[in-house]
Every structure is written in C-alpha cells, then in structure tokens.
Design a protein around this nucleic acid. Structure first.
Lengths: 176, 176
DNA sequence: GTCTATAAATCGATAGAC
DNA sequence: GTCTATCGATTTATAGAC
C-alpha cells in the first residue's frame, strides 16, 4: 500500500503491489476484490482517523479556539500515524465513484473545522477582520502539507503536532 | 492541458487531450512529440513563472522580511495566472526523468525562499525561537494550497495574493 | 495538417489446474 | 492460497494515405 504513496495510485499497478507482497498478481486478487476496493479500504483508514479527532472530548470542550488548537495538533498526529492512507486521501481527485465518496467525506471534515473557525471569530477569540473561509482554507492547506515532507522514523517527529499548532496560533512568520 | 488539472496527468490519455482539441489522436501527435514532452512544456511554464518572481527587483530589495512578503504574494499571483501548469508541478512525484528534473527545480525555488526565511530570523525580523526550516515548509504548503480551491473567473481573485500574505505575516489564527 | 488503421505494451481482472 | 495462462480493454505511439 505504501507504493500508492511513492508512485501514486494510477501509476501503481496491481502487479507492482503483488510483487511487493511477494506473490503473483492472481494470488493478490485472492485477497482483494479489486484495485478500487483496495483504494476504498485505505481511504477508510484515513477518514476514520480524522473523524476520531472530531469525536475526541478535547475537540468538544473549552472555547472554540482551544478546541481548534487540539484539532490541529491531533490532525497532524493522525497524518503522521496513517501517512500512506492520509496521503492517498489528499490526492483524491474525484474521477471514480469511490473517489467522489472520499471527497465528500473529506469536505465534511473540513466543513466542521471551518465552522469552528467561524465560531472562534464570532467569539472574538481570533484576529478581528479575519476572513473565516480563507483562514480555514489556509489552515487546512498548511496542516495537510505536513504530508509532503514528514517521513516516519526520523527524530523529532513527536514534536511536530505541537510545533505546527504553535505556528498556526502564534503565526508562521509574525514580526513579534 | 486543463484536463491534466481535473483528471490528473496519468488518468488523462492523449485521446482525451486530442478530443478536447477537436482533432484526432494522430493529428495531436503532429503538434507534440510525446505525452512527456507535453508535460515538460507545462512544467517549464510553471517554473519560469516562479523563478521570474525571484528575479523581480522587489524580491531583491529591502529587508529579508519585506522581500519575503513580496515573494509570497507574487508566488500566489503566479499560481493564479498559470494555475493548470503550477498544479501540474505541485503533483509531480518523480517517477520519470522529466518529473525528477521538475522536482529538482522546485526544490531549488523552495531552497531560495527557505534561505530568505533564515535571513529574516537571523536579522531579528521574525518571531524569536522560530524554526526556519519548519516555517519555510509550512509557508510553502500554505501558499501552494491555494491551488486546491482557487478557480479563475470568480470575483475577488485579485485580492487573494495580498490576503494570503496578510495571513502569513499577521498570522492565520492569531489571538490578537 | 489531418485522417484511418494498427502496432506494441500494459492495464485490471478472470479461468482453471494444483 | 498460489500458480500459469489468457482475456478484453486501453494505453502511447507510429505508418502511411490524402
């Protein structure tokens, strides 16, 4: 499944996957009904991890800004823990029915976070004049971009979620 | 070429492209030597746009933070102007020789920006204790994520570069 | 510069023996 | 549960007529 991560879903053939598993292509089809079923299973892992973040008590207690901070850090942690699957999800374009389903789920997650940003702005917890829609989009982009450079096993990985949350709430490049 | 944007490079066949151009696949091959040549031409457009940003006078005058702010806004503007090509570049994974070349060029661009972040930190213009490497990575991720939601022709597009630069330098979600 | 026709390779997936 | 063999569709790309 990691092959999807490095070469991309389309560019990875079932023969690539079966060879990596040490069996022939036909044997591989004994374990998975189709390539799309394999994709769906991977996307489900990523989506389960993300929605568990929203169900966590810390995501539903305290001020909007406090809840938002927990979600940002936890979302990064999920991205690290399920990197191949989250990467798969982030690259979905919506060409097939399975991909459209995943896109819809992902939008639901982003919508929940976006609404929370709106709540925090309405509560006066964030910068005044902040456009909640733009802020939520940039926030999503920043968090998900961790998948572009984070690689498991390297030292310092455990500090990434908090460091990202700090950058978001104290500013990426603030003058003071 | 916009087809690469919506369906992805691998999932878009030469027949898809030729049909969109209103000619047959064979006629299409009269204009482009290969699918990879088409990809390379598109990637070149994106890279030319990005490096022109670094060559602009405003990217080489003033304090590091001032130069950085110009680059962020100008990079977003290039992304908007050459959306299909920049999108193509952002999705390159390095499977072929052409893709590895593009990745190398992109890393060179990011390296220049990253060095500038380091200069700004060293000059005391940014938050103390800021990790320049992490900040540069998140900055890159945030800027490039505009390609995920920006669509040409919609009102308010001209304000996006400044709005993104504001979010970066005043904070995405700052408390004050 | 566009077309029909086709080559050569690869794809996802299946049949059927063991 | 794994294998060899193959199907049928699709892919990039070319040959050659007009």
């Amino acid at each position: 499944m990691v092959e999807f991560n490095t070469r991309g879903y389309d560019a990875t053939s079932m023969e690539d996957l079966s060879r990596a598993a040490g069996i022939t292509k036909s044997s591989f089809y004994h374990h998975f009904a189709s390539k799309e079923a394999l994709l769906r299973a991977g996307l489900q892992v990523a989506l389960d991890g993300l929605f568990e973040v929203l169900d966590h008590p810390d995501a539903n207690a305290g001020s909007p800004a406090q809840r938002l901070r927990y979600i940002v850090a936890a979302q990064v942690a999920v991205l690290q823990r399920e990197l191949p699957y989250v990467t798969l999800l982030l690259r979905v374009r919506g060409n097939t029915e399975t991909e459209r389903w995943a896109l819809e789920q992902r939008r639901a997650f982003d919508g929940r976070v976006s609404a929370l940003v709106g709540d925090a702005v309405a509560a006066g917890e964030l910068r005044s004049g902040l456009d909640p829609t733009l802020a939520a989009r940039l926030l999503s982009g920043l968090v998900n971009s961790v998948a572009e450079w984070y690689r498991p096993g390297r030292p310092g990985g455990a500090a990434v979620p908090d460091a990202v949350a700090d950058a978001v709430f104290a500013g990426i490049l603030p003058a003071s």
